[in-house]
Write a protein that binds this DNA or RNA. Sequence first.
DNA 1: GACTGTGAAGCCATTCACAGCT
DNA 2: AGCTGTGAATGGCTTCACAGTC
Lengths: 202, 202
Amino acid sequence: MRLAVYSRFLENAKQRGVVTISSGSIAEGTGVTPAQVRKDLAYFGEFGTRGVGYNVRELNGHVLRILGLNHKWPTVLVGAGKLGSALALYEGFLARGFHIVGIFDVDTDPVGKRFGSIEVLPVSQLEEVISKYNVQIGIITVPVAAAQDVGERLAGAGIKAILNFSPKVINLPADIIVRHVDFSLHLEVLTFNLARKVESKK
Amino acid sequence: MRLAVYSRFLENAKQRGVVTISSGSIAEGTGVTPAQVRKDLAYFGEFGTRGVGYNVRELNGHVLRILGLNHKWPTVLVGAGKLGSALALYEGFLARGFHIVGIFDVDTDPVGKRFGSIEVLPVSQLEEVISKYNVQIGIITVPVAAAQDVGERLAGAGIKAILNFSPKVINLPADIIVRHVDFSLHLEVLTFNLARKVESKK
DNA sequence: GACTGTGAAGCCATTCACAGCT
DNA sequence: AGCTGTGAATGGCTTCACAGTC
């Protein structure tokens, strides 16, 4: 979603001390057209001043609110393998308001380990933690075989949105928002484009 | 890209012993419409048989070739931190033909460590390895501050496509294909949708 | 003069619906 | 009858261009 990209750019501009910014600058910094930026923003309200531009601080506030980032999001992570632990320590999440309140694993092996300030718990405590912190977001980093089960369990425990890193599409009721991150897929888009390029040179 | 998704599904169907498959089945398994599937495939050639469907094995072969996955892709990875090492050990890459031939780090600390069969090398050897294996793909998992530099260095060494995991957009010449994977961004799409949902219920 | 907000036009991707093959 | 390949229709997103505001 482009709004999230704008927000990143605005955050950066704010830190650089920029007070007012035009749709043109935002466009340049995020790789879209000025008209696009204006349309996107105007859809949610009139945030700018004609002849002047947008107030960076103010606009970012609006965008964050639209993105639902005006408050913290407690999050659980299932799968304390290599990828899971990398994500558990990923500072980017915290910076954008995502607080991992529980890391879980089916395996008893990683249970008890600590990643940052939180400990890996057995999945048996999943429902308890979700309910205690009123968690709505879950991250899945378990092996393919366990992904569907974990997804269902999260849905059953009241999770509303899932970010799935296992290389398997999971099927859940339509009211659960699922996003799928497949690393190989990203690389395949690259090779597809590389292959096309060679092709077009013939 | 949808073709990559189809390929995943076909791979799976092949393993289940399916010989012939219809656009409808592919559509169902990948969450698109049958017409979409046919349009996508027909664009590259006539792979199916009217009245019958597509031969799974044959079609997957075509799709893999279109995706440029009919041969191995040597790949380098820069940044041997938590995420880098998780990716270095990610089996999914190998399964799709991506062979990591070098892991690099600016820091001398992780240099010498082994991830799977390969050793972490100092960045000073980056150009040498890229040239030796004729590498075209690079993966960046370094901290924000170093991302742009590493990108330029990869581009300078002849890399043609980059998968960037640092939460910073990097600017490179237009002929370098860059894809950006930002984990927080994915979560933000989830919160945006969650926020919208609550909104629409009012 | 600079820059936003927005109706209208243009463009591209998706879907429809059917002819054509097996 | 079953299913693909594809022109035509549709719908949605993007760009244009300009009126409105500072």
